[in-house]
Design a protein around this nucleic acid. Structure first.
Length: 430
RNA sequence: GACCCCAUCGUCUAGCCUGGUCUAGGACAAGAGCUUUUCAAGCUCUCGACACGGGUUCAAAUCCCGUUGGGGUCACCA
C-alpha cells in the first residue's frame, strides 16, 4: 500500500512550492491507489501559529486535496524522546551539556558512504564523514526536524517521500537515522524547485508566494493546479490544458523533470482564462458576489442574480483573472462612470450631438429592445449618415462604459438597458 | 568555500533511458496581420533553443569525460 505525506510547517502560509509538493504527493497517491497523509510539523513553538495551520488546511482544501490522515508533531514529543533514549542506550547517541546545564541528545554520525536511489534523479552518493554529529533532541526538549521526520515517516508507514529538491542534503542524514533505528527505508523522490523570475527562490519580491494570494487574485484552483502540473511534468502529447484528475491517469513519477522551473504568471493567466471561459457562470457569480458587495456594487441579499449571470457570461471568455470582472464591468454597476481620459479625448473630443441624438431616438423607438434590433437600428443610422460604423461605435462605447475595450457594443447596450444607455449618450448631446 | 543537484527557444516543455525518422515539435510571451466594432477574446503568420570543449560511433540534442553557468544545502529552523 502506497502511503505518501505532505508535511508543512505552520510558520507561514501555504506557498506555491508547498502547494506543488502537495500536488505531486496527492497525484502519486491517487495514481497508485494509496493514502495521502498530512503531517503538521509544529515542533517550533515560537514560530508555529494556529492561524497558519488553519490557513494551510484551508488552502489544501481549496486546491482539492483531501487527506486520509492528519498528525501534529507537537502531540508526539513522547515518541521522539523514546527513540532518542533508545539511541542513547545503544550508544549511538550521546548527551551534550550546555554551560547552563541543559542537556541535548546528539547522534554520533558514523563514517560511511550513503547511496540514495532517487526515483526522479537516480543514484546520488554522499560521504557521511562530511556530515557533523546531528542534534536529535534540542536542549529545550524539542526534537530536531530530521529526527522527528524520520520517526514519523517510519511510524506512519510512509512508503514514498516526495519533496522539494532543497531536501536532498537532508536525505543522507535521515538515512543514517533510519539505519540506526532499524527502520525500513522509504523510497525518495526529489522535485525540482520553482524559481522566481529573478532566477532565485520564489519570494515575495518577485510576486505573490501564497496559494491564498492567488485565490484572492481570482485564479481558479483548477487553473493554478494545471499550471503547477506543467511546471515539471507534461502529459506528453503537446497538451497544455489538463485537469488533475486526468493527470492521475497519465502520471508516472519517473517522468517528472529534473530541472527547476521559473514561475511565469503570464502563462498562468492564459491557463486561467482557458478555465474561466468554460467555467460554470453560476459558480463564478458566487465567487463574484462578495467582491461586488465589497465595492458597493450590489447588496448580496438583494440583487438581480439572473442579470449578474448574464454579465458573467458576457465577460468570462475574456478575463485572465476572475477578479478583473469587478473593474472591467464596473460600468454596469456605477451610476457615475470612471472615464478613461485619453479615450474621452480621442473619441469624444468632437461634437457628436447630432449622431448620438439620432441614435438615442432610434433606441427610444425600439419596441422590441433586443441585441439584434439594436444592431440593425444602428447599422441603418450609420448608412443614413453615410459614415463608417466604427466612427460611431468607439465614441458610443466610451460614452457608455468609460472604456475603449470590452464586449461587443450591441450586447453592452442591451444589457445596460434602454434608459441607462440613453441617459449616458444624452450627456454628450449639447 | 565544501558537498550535492541541474543544463533544449525569453519562459514552460516534447525528444534523451532504447543514438539515425530532429534542416529539433508544441504552448506562453513578443512582433505582424485578419476579424463589415474595441481587445485583454478568436484565427493566421513571424521571430526564437540543443551552454562550451573533448571523446565514443558510420552517425550524438540523445552515451562518456571535462569546463562553464545556474541552483540547493551546509542551524539545538523546518
Amino acid at each position: 500500500m502506497v502511503r505518501v505525506r505532505f508535511a508543512p510547517s505552520p510558520t507561514g502560509n501555504l506557498h506555491i512550492g508547498g502547494g506543488r509538493t502537495a500536488l505531486f504527493n496527492w497525484l502519486f497517491s491517487q495514481s497508485q491507489g494509496g493514502k495521502f497523509v498530512l503531517r503538521i510539523e509544529d515542533t517550533d513553538k515560537e514560530r508555529s501559529k494556529k492561524e497558519f495551520v488553519d490557513e494551510i488546511l484551508y488552502s489544501l482544501q481549496w486546491l482539492g486535496f483531501n487527506w486520509d490522515e492528519i498528525y501534529y508533531q507537537s502531540q508526539r514529543f513522547d515518541q521522539y524522546r523514546m527513540y532518542a533514549d533508545k539511541l542513547l542506550k545503544s550508544g549511538l547517541a550521546y548527551i551534550e551539556r550546555s554551560p547552563e546545564g541543559k542537556e541535548a541528545i546528539i547522534y554520533k554520525v558514523p563514517a560511511q558512504k550513503i547511496q540514495v536511489n532517487d526515483l526522479i534523479r537516480g543514484k546520488i552518493e554522499f560521504e557521511s564523514s562530511l556530515i557533523k554529529d546531528q542534534v536529535l533532541i534540542k536542549s529545550d526538549g524539542t526534537p530536531t526536524y530530521n529526527f522527528a521526520c524520520v520517526i514519523d515517516d517510519a511510524q506512519m508507514n510512509i512508503t514514498h517521500i516526495i519533496r522539494g529538491d532543497d531536501h536532498i542534503s537532508n536525505t543522507p542524514k535521515q538515512i543514517l537515522l533510519y539505519q540506526a533505528l532499524g527502520f525500513d527505508l522509504p523510497l525518495f523522490a526529489h522535485l525540482p524547485l520553482i524559481m522566481g523570475v529573478d532566477g532565485g527562490r520564489l519570494s515575495k519580491r518577485t510576486g505573490a508566494t501564497a496559494i491564498s494570494d492567488y485565490r484572492k487574485m481570482g485564479y481558479l484552483s483548477e487553473a493554478l493546479l494545471n499550471y503547477l502540473l506543467l511546471l515539471s511534468w507534461a502529459p506528453g502529447d503537446n497538451r497544455e490544458i489538463i485537469t488533475v484528475n486526468e493527470a492521475v491517469k497519465l502520471f508516472d513519477i519517473k517522468n517528472v523533470n529534473k530541472t527547476s522551473a521559473t514561475f511565469d504568471i503570464k502563462k498562468l493567466d492564459w491557463i486561467n482564462n482557458q478555465y474561466l471561459k468554460n467555467a460554470d457562470p453560476e459558480k463564478l457569480a458566487d465567487q463574484l458576489v462578495p467582491l461586488l458587495e465589497a465595492k458597493g456594487y450590489i447588496n448580496k441579499d438583494n440583487f438581480d442574480r439572473k442579470y449578474l449571470l448574464d454579465l458573467v457570461k458576457l465577460f468570462q471568455a475574456r478575463l485572465p483573472r476572475l477578479n478583473d470582472f469587478v473593474d472591467w464591468a464596473d460600468f454596469f454597476f456605477l451610476e457615475e462612470l470612471l472615464m478613461d481620459e485619453t479615450a474621452v479625448k480621442k473619441y469624444l473630443g468632437q461634437d457628436l450631438s447630432k449622431e448620438f441624438g439620432l441614435f438615442v431616438q432610434r433606441l427610444d423607438n425600439l419596441v422590441d429592445y433586443s441585441v439584434i434590433n439594436i444592431e440593425s437600428s444602428f447599422r441603418e443610422l450609420v448608412v443614413e449618415l453615410g459614415i463608417e460604423a466604427k466612427k460611431l461605435i468607439h465614441p458610443i462605447r466610451v460614452a457608455l462604459t468609460g472604456k475603449t475595450i470590452g464586449p461587443g457594443l450591441f450586447e453592452l447596450i442591451y444589457y445596460l438597458g434602454k434608459e441607462r444607455s440613453k441617459r449616458r449618450l444624452l450627456k454628450w448631446v449639447k
